[in-house]
Nucleic acid binder design. Structure first.
Ligand SMILES: [Mg+2]
Length: 344
DNA sequence: AAATCTAAACACG
DNA sequence: CGTGTTTAGATTT
């Protein structure tokens, strides 16, 4: 169902910024750019197609209305221009704040960072884990409640304090909770008579390379959420095509059951069975493992009969939740943007 | 490939 | 509704 044509040539990687309503992080827009992916209905892995072939392959498998040449899957060319300008502003702002970054007065001792991560540049801590550890280590009892961690952060990390002042604490507080729960070095100390627990740190609880087993998801491909990266304007695509005429593309095939492209391990799939998508009547192969969110898992063997009967029980009503199926499979998306952009 | 970030569903008192 | 647990897609390293 999904086929990714990554443009291979190093010199033609750039299509443009499409970053306005970054769907995946709507509250924290940031810059990105880079490879183009054509998600189409093509069913086989191809390599070395020309850009033109790739494009026509894409279009032949898609089903959409081209009547408005300025409108491509909800994004208007004019909006694309706005997007570029906004991104330039964002970049300038970031450079400015980087340059004018004299030491904040609330000095906290920070260990010499090994890596300069984005978070490091923004707030002085390498990751949320580091922030939480610091907060807990700074406490008398080496234990804090969630709310005390929030408070420590707001008192000691100007960046997050400012976010809170502007009513934008939802994301980082969520991230704190997420990290507390997810990472094994943070453990709970229950208290009698209190609703919430204390959190403590024990780094020896970290188990490196720990894997989680998981059953293969049983959901019809058509119901699976598609990439959330932004669609781009048709005009931009056409420009790209004409500018890169004849150059070779590399097609990467990936299983429709799994949407995180960069995590699919090639392993020999024990799950050859697989399903035909009842809508397209196409069949797919499945990778044996994927990882996401820092967790990795191996798929358990899927029983064919069970799988088939599951398929037969699929319900093709349009669901009303967020996981709206996208039968058209028509997204043309851009991911991983580098530092340049193309004018279109 | 692995780690991290952002977002959000969901449970529970 | 605040606290916790999880899943997941995107991004960074
Ligand atoms: Mg934990």
């Amino acid at each position: 169902m999904c086929k990714t044509f990554a443009i291979k040539d190093d010199d033609i990687t750039l299509l443009g910024y499409v970053n306005k309503n970054v769907k995946n992080t709507p509250n924290t827009p940031r810059i990105r750019a880079n490879t183009i992916s054509f998600h189409s209905d093509a069913s086989k892995s191809d390599t070395s197609k020309s850009v033109e072939e790739t494009y026509s392959d894409l279009m032949n498998n898609l089903n959409y209305n081209m009547e408005d040449p300025d409108d491509f899957f909800g994004i208007k060319l004019s909006d694309s221009m706005d997007i570029i300008e906004e991104n330039q502003e964002i970049q300038e702002d970031q450079e400015k704040s980087n340059n004018s970054n004299d030491k904040p007065e609330d000095e906290i001792t920070i260990e010499e960072p090994k890596k300069k991560t984005d978070l490091q540049k923004i707030c002085g801590f390498q990751s949320y884990q580091h922030i939480i550890e610091k907060a807990i280590y700074c406490s008398e009892e080496k234990m804090l409640t969630l709310n005390q961690i929030y408070n420590w952060v707001e008192e000691n990390v100007p960046y997050f304090r400012d976010l809170s002042k502007n009513n934008k604490s939802k994301c980082w507080k969520n991230a704190i909770r997420h990290n507390l729960s997810l990472h094994k070095q943070f453990y709970k100390v229950l208290r009698e008579g209190h609703r919430s627990c204390l959190w403590a740190v024990d780094k020896s609880r970290i188990i490196k390379g720990e894997k989680t087993k998981k059953a293969a998801p049983i959901l019809p491909p058509s119901f699976r959420q598609r990439s959330q990266t932004d669609p781009i304007s048709l005009k931009a695509v056409k420009n790209f095509i004409s500018e890169n005429s004849g150059k070779k593309t590399e097609a990467k095939f990936y299983d429709p059951l799994i949407s995180q492209i960069n995590s699919i391990s090639s392993g020999n799939s024990s799950v050859e069975i697989l399903p035909q998508d009842p809508i397209t009547n196409k069949s797919y192969s499945s990778p044996s493992s994927t990882s996401s969110s820092g967790l990795s898992w191996n798929y358990e063997q899927v029983n064919k009969d069970a799988y088939v009967s599951n398929i037969q029980s699929w319900n093709y009503e349009y669901p009303q939740n967020d996981y709206t199926p996208n039968y058209e499979s028509r997204f043309l998306s851009i991911t991983r943007m580098p530092s340049q952009h193309l004018d279109f």
